[in-house]
């Protein structure tokens, strides 16, 4: 299963109470095209989506904040997983889409396969974690729990490489921020 298929599967689960932070490159583009708008589509900010999601979650306890990040991005800001696990906001969900590649920049290998994610996530003593190979039945069985279990939840999914050709996000980042901020008027 490919990353964009996982992201489009979130469609049925995401409502008005959901705030999404997506990591730069294909993931932000896919979130923009497949999920309800507006969300926080990061463009640069490599390594920072979990930090942004943590700030949003702590400031908005009545909302559900989901961070969608790739493995390269996760590795660059790895300390943020530890910070999130320390503060454990009850409304923060982190979805890691792991293809072991910097796919957006041409498929260069990352070092993510050095991590045993099940053991690592277990060590964080968080409320929900799974490390699984993505498939439709795996999503059917796990997405709801991942999103609705109260607590800091992390779902690590091994995905296949591959993308759909999608148009670039048409909004300038200033517009992304303005549109998102309107959700708090």
């Amino acid at each position: 299963m490919k990353g964009y298929e996982v992201i489009s599967s979130l469609q049925d689960h995401i409502g008005e109470n959901d705030l999404i932070v997506s990591s730069n490159g294909n993931i932000s583009r896919e979130v923009y095209h497949y999920l309800a708008k507006p969300q926080v589509y990061l463009r640069g900010s490599m390594g920072l989506p979990i930090g942004v999601g943590l700030g949003l979650a702590v400031m908005n306890p009545e909302k559900r904040v989901t961070v969608i990040t790739g493995d390269g991005n996760l590795l660059m800001g790895f300390g943020s997983v530890i910070t999130a696990a320390y503060y454990k906001p009850h409304n923060l969900k982190i979805l890691i889409l792991d293809n072991s590649q910097y796919f957006t920049t041409g498929g260069q290998q990352t070092v993510s396969s050095a991590i045993n994610f099940s053991k690592f996530l277990e060590s964080l003593n968080i409320d929900y974690f799974q490390s699984l190979k993505a498939s439709q039945s795996i999503l059917d069985d796990n997405l709801e729990n991942f999103l609705t279990t109260q607590g800091l939840n992390i779902l690590h999914l091994i995905i296949e490489e591959g993308k759909r050709e999608l148009a670039n996000i048409p909004w300038h980042p200033i517009k992304i921020a303005e549109n998102f901020l309107q959700r708090f008027d």
Binding site: L19, V21, V40, S45, G47, L48, P49, I50, G51, V52, G53, L54, G55, L56, A57, V58, M59, N60, G77, G79, S80, I82, T83, Y86, A177, F180, L181, F184
Partner: peptide, 18 residues
Amino acid sequence: SATREDEAIAIAIGAALS
């Protein structure tokens, strides 16, 4: 408390975005 200064900036931006 943040692990790196850029993480602290990111956390602050999460607040600013709301």
